[in-house]
Each structure stands twice: as structure tokens, then as C-alpha cells.
């Protein structure tokens, strides 16, 4: 008996029952093989159907149209108990808990310091802490941030994609780092440092991806994150930026 059309379709999509037997039949039977090849030609044509490329600036265009609409559609009120893991408040709370004692000085000070790391031409009116001390505190904090980020990425990049991998601690860790990263990225952007902004931007995407991932990753999900880490050569770039920051940290006069 020859293979049914359904068998051929599910065989093509890798979801046929008794795939091995179907494969054997195809190898032995010219009639079914011809039917299968004709199916393949049709589906190959479907594959080649050109889809328009919306262009590199598409996301920006989407956001431009979306942003004013978001304000009219405020998100549904959150339930008292159900708090999303990644609220800014939570990030700041964890940031304070995790940051180095020196960098803990208070968030406002830290945000102020960030402007100093990539110095802006405008002078800031009040300077509550001597400049060198502030810069040192900030450089230490940025250095730590880059180091912690690398550790998490290295860990995931080298994990073996098994059936299930518990990443709940990495996930929490990434969520904690996203907030800091955003502040540093914004400071770098303000200061017009496109290279560092780009690295931090890449890092932020990966951190968000990890922070939003399930606490247990399947092999495929892990591989996706690993590909994302590899694709931008992000670990290498992070090492370069970190060593740059560390060198400045060692200079007797800060920056």
C-alpha cells in the first residue's frame, strides 16, 4: 500500500507517526517518492514567497505611532498581590540591596554621578561630594556592573542545553542588573558615546531576555539565549569596556 497524502505532509513537517517506516517506504517506492518530491517543490515555492522587509527603522516608526496611544490606554490596574517581577521600584530596591556599599550613596547621587562619568559640557551647580571621590565610586560601580553582567552571560553561554535548566537565580540577577544598565546606558547616550551606548544597549536586550525567560529553560530556549549572546559578540565587547573602565579606576586622578 502506498503512503497517504497526510503521511507525506506530516513526514515533511517532522510530525508523522512511524516516521522511520515512512522513510523506508520512500526509499523503496518510486511512486511515493515522486509524490513526496512534488509536495516538496510546492512547499519550497511557498518558502520562497518574498515577504517585504519593513526596513531597519521600522521599530522606531512603530514606537512613534504607538507611544501617544499608550498614554490613552493605561494598563489594567494591577492586583494587590500580583506584582510583576520587573517594576522599576523593585529594580531600585534590589539595586540598593545589591550595590556596593560605596555606590549605595543613594540613587539620586548615583544618577547625578552618572552624568559625570561621561562628562557633559554643562557644569552642574552643586557638588555635594568631592569630584574624585564621586568618580571613583561611580567607576567602581560600573566596573562591578560589567563584571557581574559578564558572569551571568558566561554562565549561560556555557550551560549545556539539557531538557530542563533551572535559571531562576540568573533570571533574578539579570532583572536586578537591567535597572543599573539602563541608567548607565542613558548616561552614555547623553554624553554622546555611541560605542559604549551600543554595547550597553546590546547587553540590556540580553538581560531583558533572560529576566523575562521562564525560571526553567528548555534546551531550545537556552539555545536561543546562547545564540543571542554569541551573535553580537557581546562578551568580547563587554570585556573591552570593562578593562577600559578598570584602567580609569586605577588612575590616581580618576578620569
Amino acid at each position: 500500500m502506498h503512503l497517504s497524502e497526510e503521511q507525506l505532509v506530516w513526514y515533511r513537517y517532522g510530525e508523522a507517526k512511524g516516521a522511520a517506516a515512512i522513510g523506508e517506504h520512500l526509499a523503496a517506492c518510486a511512486t511515493c517518492r515522486a509524490a513526496y518530491q512534488s509536495l516538496e517543490r510546492v512547499l519550497a515555492a511557498v518558502d520562497q514567497m518574498p515577504a517585504p522587509d519593513p526596513g531597519e527603522n521600522y521599530a522606531a516608526a512603530v514606537w512613534q505611532r504607538l507611544e501617544p496611544r499608550l498614554q490613552q490606554c493605561r494598563p489594567a490596574q494591577r492586583d494587590e498581590g500580583a506584582v510583576r517581577s520587573l517594576t522599576l521600584t523593585a529594580l531600585f530596591a534590589t539595586w540598593r540591596r545589591l550595590a556596593l556599599a560605596a555606590a549605595m550613596a543613594v540613587l539620586i547621587v548615583a544618577a547625578f554621578l552618572l552624568g559625570r562619568f561621561w562628562p557633559r559640557p554643562q557644569t552642574v551647580a552643586r557638588q555635594p561630594i568631592p569630584e574624585q571621590v564621586r568618580e571613583r565610586i561611580l567607576l567602581v560601580a560600573v566596573g562591578e556592573h560589567l563584571e557581574r553582567s559578564q558572569m551571568i552571560l558566561i554562565e549561560l553561554a556555557n550551560a549545556n542545553p539539557g531538557p530542563q535548566l533551572d535559571v531562576s537565580s540568573e533570571r533574578q540577577w539579570a532583572a536586578d542588573l537591567v535597572g543599573d544598565n539602563r541608567l548607565y546606558r542613558q548616561a552614555a547616550a547623553r554624553a554622546g558615546d555611541p560605542a559604549i551606548t551600543a554595547v550597553l544597549d546590546d547587553l540590556e536586550r540580553v538581560l531583558l531576555e533572560i529576566a523575562h525567560s521562564p525560571s526553567t529553560l528548555s534546551g531550545g530556549e537556552l539555545e536561543r539565549i546562547q545564540r543571542q549572546i554569541e551573535s553580537g559578540d557581546i562578551l568580547f565587547k563587554l570585556r573591552v569596556v570593562e578593562s577600559k573602565v578598570r584602567r580609569q579606576e586605577e588612575k590616581p586622578n580618576g578620569l
Binding site: 489594567a76 494591577r78 510583576r84 523575562h212
Partner: peptide, 10 residues
């Protein structure tokens, strides 16, 4: 978005 709690990939 508030109810998206990371159970799924974004």
C-alpha cells in the same frame, strides 16, 4: 504588560 510575569518568553 503588568500581568506578563516572565512565564513565557516575551
Amino acid at each position: 504588560f503588568d500581568r506578563f510575569d516572565g512565564r513565557a518568553q516575551p
